[in-house]
Every structure is written in C-alpha cells, then in structure tokens.
Design a protein around this nucleic acid. Structure first.
Lengths: 145, 145
DNA sequence: GTGGATGCAAACGATTTGCAAGCAT
DNA sequence: ATGCTTGCAAATCGTTTGCATCCAC
C-alpha cells in the first residue's frame, strides 16, 4: 500500500470512518492516474478493475480525499470538476491551453509574495489562491511555424 | 440610454441581430446591478420591472453581453456562475471571503508582468488569466478584535 | 414579410441524495 | 451487533434547448 493510502486510512480512522475496499480501489486509481482527472474518468478507470463500484462512491470518495488533503478540486471551465493530487506536492498554478486543453503547471515564488502584499494592503487574510493563465500552448500557437 | 447599451446595440446590428425590449431591459438592469451578479439574481431584478421576461432570455442575453465585451463570467466556487461588468473597466483580480462571500477587487501590474514572464518561459501565449485569493475579509477574520 | 427572438416547458449533464442491503469495526 | 458505506435510481440544480408564437427590422 502506498503512502497516500496510509494518509487516507489515518484520516478516516481519526474520524471514525471506515477504510473499505472501494475507498482503497478508488484512492489507488486516483494516485496512479494522470494529474487533473475527472470524476467520470476516475470512475471509468476503477470500473475497469471492479465493475461493481458506483459513480456515486467515486464522488463521495473524492470528497473525502479533498478533506484529507490528498486531492484538490479545480474548475478549468470545461463544465466538470477536475481533481489533482495534492499530497506531498508544493503549491503550483496552471497554464491552460484553450485549443487542446493541455494543462501545464508552474510555480513562481515572487508572484506568491506579491499576493501576500496585496492581501495585507486590503486587510485580507489569504488562505489559498488560484491562478490560471489561459491562452495557447506552444503546439497550438497560431503564430507557430 | 446609457453608453453600455449603445455598445450592445452596435454589436448586435453588426451581426444582424435585433435590439429587443427584453435585451434592453436586461442590459440596463445588469449595468445598474451590483458587480458579480448571478443569472438568477438578474432575472429577479428584471422580473420586478417586467414579469413577462423569461429566465432563458436572461441567460441568452448574458451570453451576448459576454460576447460583446460588456460582461465577464466568473466561477467563485459557489456552484453558479457570476457575471461582472467588463465595459470600460481595466483588468482586475479578486479577493474572496470564504465566510461572508464578499468579493473585493484589486489590480497589481507587477503580478501581471510576472505572469507574462512565466508564460514566455513556458513558450505559452497568454490571452487572459484569472487570479483569485481565498481567505477571510477584515470583518470575518478570526483574529479580529 | 421574414428571420431572428421569446416564453414556456422539457431536456440536459454534472453532482448529490434517499434508501434498503452490505460490510468493516 | 452497530452504524458507517454502498449501489442504484431518483432527485437536484444551474443552464440549455425545442418549438410555436411574436416582433424588430
């Protein structure tokens, strides 16, 4: 069992919740899946291994993973939520290609620092943030070639 | 008639579309409403003046306002889209209070510049971006008082 | 007059929930 | 045993769409 599942197990037992077969399957599939997976996509992956797992359980488990700090929700404007791994990963932001949908991550400490400055000026206590840059990735740029 | 409506009228006629009573009512209500209004909220406002306007038309008109550059969609994670005025307004970002839901705007040129830098490094062509900082506004801060 | 616009209700798609049965503790 | 979990189907909720009628041009 991977370390991520161990985290979930602890988080569950701490709250008097159970570590079931479905939760293990879904968590394992999630941790091994591509970043930024969809609930549907994860459901399809899990169904491949065990067709008895329901979509509702995938949603319920993803909610738990978020609460335990193993997943993070993202809305990239596609009409459905994407979930990304957040265990043992530093904070990062996203470049989103409007043509092919590719999502690239980046991290920029200076931007983070300036965000704190802005918050202070507004007497605002920042807890988290979300920075998304939309445009064309290298391959989809119209001025390519 | 305000300047914003004039913009819509031009944008419509340019595409062979019509400037109807409903579109005028909805646009006027939108431009006079609070920033960051919901389709439902705008519908309620418009219904007050003319109960014959349908919610579907509000949605359809908001889509037009977005296409004409008079409105901008935002998802603040409430489960419904909010629309903000974007005519004659510079770009800005948002501080969102997780307790009371208050949205404060800010603008920080240095952050914008750094975003361009990051994009260049990734060979990404930025078209727009979205920066949201979530936390506690002054009044809702737990360390208040 | 004509093609776009409207209202209504039905359709939609992602997500959530009620419930009886199942299973981890 | 106990009560949290599950699958299923039905419900929800914001948003979109089909269609007959209406109206700006």
């Amino acid at each position: 069992m991977g370390h991520g599942e161990e985290v979930l197990r602890r988080c569950l037992s701490h709250r008097g919740l159970k570590f079931t077969r479905q939760r293990r399957l879904i968590t394992e599939a999630f941790l091994n899946a591509e970043e930024h997976i969809t609930a549907e996509g994860l459901y399809r992956r899990v169904s491949g291994r065990d067709p008895r797992v329901g979509l509702a359980t995938v949603y319920r488990t993803l909610a738990l993973l978020c609460e335990c700090g193993l997943a993070r929700r993202h809305d990239f404007g596609e009409g459905q939520t994407r979930y990304e791994h957040s265990y043992d990963r530093g904070h990062h932001d996203h470049l989103i290609c409007q043509v092919c949908g590719k999502v690239t991550e980046f991290h920029h400490p200076k931007i983070e620092r300036l965000q704190k400055e802005v918050s202070e000026q507004a007497r605002f206590t920042p807890l988290s943030h979300r920075l998304e840059i939309y445009g064309y990735c290298e391959g989809c740029s119209p001025r390519k070639g």
